[in-house]
Design a protein around this nucleic acid. Structure first.
Length: 594
RNA sequence: GCACCGGUGGUCUAAUGGUAAGACAUUGGCCUUCCAAGCCAAUUAUCUGGGUUCGAUUCCCAGCCGGUGCACCA
């Protein structure tokens, strides 16, 4: 396919065949929201299930499901609210957008420009005669636009409890960390996954389901002790990946690096072993579900591209119409998330790590005599006691004197040293509280579905007629099997086809039964939704001596094989799981000549 | 959000200041055939609002939706 037409052709097919289409079209439509039709919903569900199996079940990770709405303080802690009141002003000359509040603060005495209304900010800009930092043009007269990337709402009656639709599923995991760590029995490392919706009020949704305002993420937060926990790379060290490191992107003749995970980690190209581990798993998973690995790469974020908290980040990218789209991100987030919640929330976001050997330490402690401090200092007594403890840790020598001087709310207070009951004790420390670091593989499910569809979209020619088909993997194809009586006016064929469809459905397959029109037309319908196999019941199969047989047709090649009807379920179980290939079925049965 | 372009049955296209044509698809019937067969019939459309006009799907304005570029994507 030539560039630029692939996604258009797919969008047309997606609408017509029930994969996805714009939502609420009956009411004029709404930007950035899509509805998955029957085929799309099934495909997406299969992708999610495949992800869940690989990243939660196979890894022994813990899956949770948190609400999509969380109260405001969560996002104060996470930093998502910072961008809430951002004001943008666009230069009419060069088109560059600037943060209006920052411009004003940089050029005036004002320090809280963020609190201005957009109208006030626009007046300030005009009043101060501000110019575009990029090209120097006057900004006066330009309107100031406010943008909120989070959807806000109110929780309960009235508007006393503001809340937001989560802009990423990750916060649901971080916020519940104190309880999850208990569930995990306080033993690092452990991973927590969540598949769910996230919401961003995008300024400009684009490229159909690639950037929407409501989307599905599959996220994994791997919690580790950076001092102790190393991933076991043995299962992925030989996995070959195509890397596009920052150094190559910056080089004039930058190129991809085809390399194994083991080498990439050894050579420090992928600096963190955990990131390397998940790149390897992701590589295999994408291949398994049918991403075209010739149109796939891992691209490292450039230094300027990194979020302020991320030490390193790699994106999985797939190629569509000549553009690369981000379909997953693998970020080393350090202890940023849990530290932030630890500071803002009441709960404890640390894990107690026991030392291999308990440590013996000498520690200066005080045991203030409150019976004396209470009457003497009244309401300040507790502060005095606390100040004594702090002083003991910081400057034990101060207790050598007869009295110590403390700073209580800016006031010097003198206390007899005796009252403090100062001593140096020998203590045994069994371990320490650490804030776990986070490695975050985060997958965009919708973009993965889109990639699968685009990469599966193929056209060929059968008997001089163009044919369109989706070469989806049997593992994730939304419809597993089409079942057709060759003709619809022979009761024996129709009855047997009904029985076959029913039996396959009972065995857990998504089956489409179709007896309308010509057989070729029915094959084409299934080709367009990527149904990998069709079963046709014909006269040859039910007449004459011997077992009743039917034919199975393979979507991509049109090859057919005649198999006993009794073997269908077993055959399709193998074909769907990928443990049997169609060639295996051909070898074991009678091939039908075209 | 800005700029440019576009919006006609389910889909893809045509045409038009005088009430919309075709293909494919869909449904029913005939036929019964392993790759979109044929024949007969049927269903289905001018994005929304305002303006100009005797009359607007057509021209103008605004909005909505989509595409592309810019910006944004924490």
């Amino acid at each position: 396919m030539s560039e630029g037409t692939e996604s258009a052709a797919l969008a047309e097919l997606a609408k017509r065949r029930g994969f996805f289409f714009g939502s609420s079209e009956a009411y004029g439509g709404v930007g950035g929201f899509y509805t998955y039709g029957p085929q799309g919903a099934a495909l997406k569900s299969n992708v999610e299930e495949a992800w869940r199996d690989r990243f939660a079940v196979q890894e022994g990770n813990l899956e949770i499901e948190a609400p999509t709405i969380m109260p405001e303080p969560v996002f104060e802690a996470s930093g998502h609210l910072d961008g809430f009141d951002d004001m943008l002003v666009e230069c009419a000359e060069c088109g560059e957008s600037h943060r209006a509040d920052h411009l004003i603060e940089d050029n005036s005495e004002l320090e809280d420009a963020e609190t201005l209304s957009p109208e006030e900010a626009a007046e300030k800009i005009a009043g101060l005669g501000l110019v575009c930092p990029n090209c120097g043009a006057e900004l006066a007269g330009q309107s100031v636009e406010e943008f909120n990337l989070m959807f806000g709402t109110n929780i309960g009656p009235g508007s006393k409890t503001p809340g937001y639709l989560r802009p990423e599923t990750a916060q649901g995991i971080f916020v519940e960390f104190p309880r999850i760590k208990e569930y995990a029995r306080n033993r690092l490392p452990f991973g927590v996954t969540q598949v769910g919706r996230a919401y961003r009020n995008e300024i400009s949704p684009r490229k159909n389901i690639v950037r929407t305002r409501e989307f599905t993420q599959a996220e994994l937060e791997q919690f580790i002790d950076p001092e102790r926990d190393e991933p076991d790379l043995s299962s992925v060290e030989d996995v070959e990946v195509r890397l596009y490191p920052a150094t190559e992107q910056q080089a004039d003749d930058g190129d991809y690096l085809d390399i194994t995970i083991g080498e990439a980690v050894d050579e420090g190209i992928v600096a963190n072993g955990w990131i390397g581990y998940y790149l390897g798993i992701a590589q295999e998973w994408y291949e398994h579900i049918g991403v075209d690995m010739e149109r796939f790469r891992f691209r490292q974020h450039l230094p300027g591209e990194l979020a302020h908290y991320a030490a390193d980040c790699w994106d999985a990218e797939s190629e569509v119409d000549g553009d690369w789209i981000e379909i997953a991100g693998f970020a080393y987030r350090g202890d940023y998330d849990l530290s932030k919640h630890g500071e803002h929330a009441d709960d404890d976001f640390t894990v107690f790590q026991q030392y291999d050997e308990p440590k013996t330490v000498e520690r200066a402690v005080v045991d203030p005599d409150m019976a004396t401090l209470g009457p003497e200092f009244g309401a300040q007594a507790a502060d005095v006691a606390e100040a004594l403890e702090t002083l003991a840790e910081r400057d034990p020598d101060a207790f050598d004197a007869d009295e110590v001087t403390l700073d209580i709310d800016g006031e010097d207070v003198t206390v007899d040293t005796d009252v403090a009951n100062f001593s140096v004790e020998t203590q045994t420390e069994a371990g320490e509280h650490i804030t776990p670091h986070v490695v975050e593989p985060s997958f965009g499910v919708d973009r993965t579905v889109y990639t699968l569809l685009v990469h599966a979209y193929e056209q060929d020619e059968v008997d001089g007629e163009a044919r369109t088909f989706l070469s989806l993997s049997p593992t994730i194809a939304p419809t597993n099997v089409g079942v057709f009586p060759l003709v619809s006016n022979v009761d024996e064929l129709v009855d047997l086809a009904d029985d076959v469809a029913e039996e396959l459905r009972a065995a857990g397959f998504a089956v489409v039964y179709d007896d309308s029109g010509s057989i070729g037309r029915r094959y084409r319908r299934q080709d367009e939704v990527g149904t990998p196999f069709c079963v046709t019941i014909d006269r040859d199969g039910i007449e004459g001596a011997g077992d009743t047989t039917v034919t199975i047709r393979e979507r991509d090649t049109g090859r057919q094989v005649r198999v006993p009807v009794d073997s269908l379920v077993e055959t399709f179980v193998g074909l769907r799981a990928g443990t049997t290939s169609f060639d295996d079925v051909l070898d074991a049965n009678e091939v039908v000549e075209a």
